[in-house]
Amino acid sequence: MAFKLTEDFKARAEKLCARYPRRDAALIPVLLELQKEAGYVAEEAMDELAKFLALPYARVKAVVTFYTMFNREPAGKYHLQVCRNISCHMAGAPGLLARLRAKLGIGEGETTKDGLFTLSAVECLGACGAAPVMQVNEDYFENLNGEKLDALLEDIKHGRLRAGGR
């Protein structure tokens, strides 16, 4: 099915473009907006967006592939991103990742069959004082351990995810 930018999306994108003296400077915020709506950035979406911003397709693709937050395939409803950098590593991130792999039956970069979870190991999330940390979609969950992680997964499965683990 061909991807089409909705009029509503175009209106929001125009507002973002208006923040800059050059429209193409809005490329990253517009891509983030697109991903928020569609869950990922499909090839067809890059094509449409290139036309909309009057940019070569290659420019859009270069940006999408450079930045790690852009998903090029549909991600699960909940994207579990476990920080694996130094402070989280020392506080037990490898154990959390192993636990998630075992419980969800998937590896890093994979999505569960029911489409509920995608698991990623990510670099420093900038919350090292509360290590180990995991970001679920836009929210941070801090000072995690095995038990807290299990409880969090149960909450998510039953639709009780509460934002802000601080």
Partner: peptide
């Protein structure tokens, strides 16, 4: 763009 591992002051 706070991202230096070990840094979480700007947040």
């Amino acid at each position: 763009d706070e991202g230096e591992p070990g840094t979480f002051k700007d947040r």
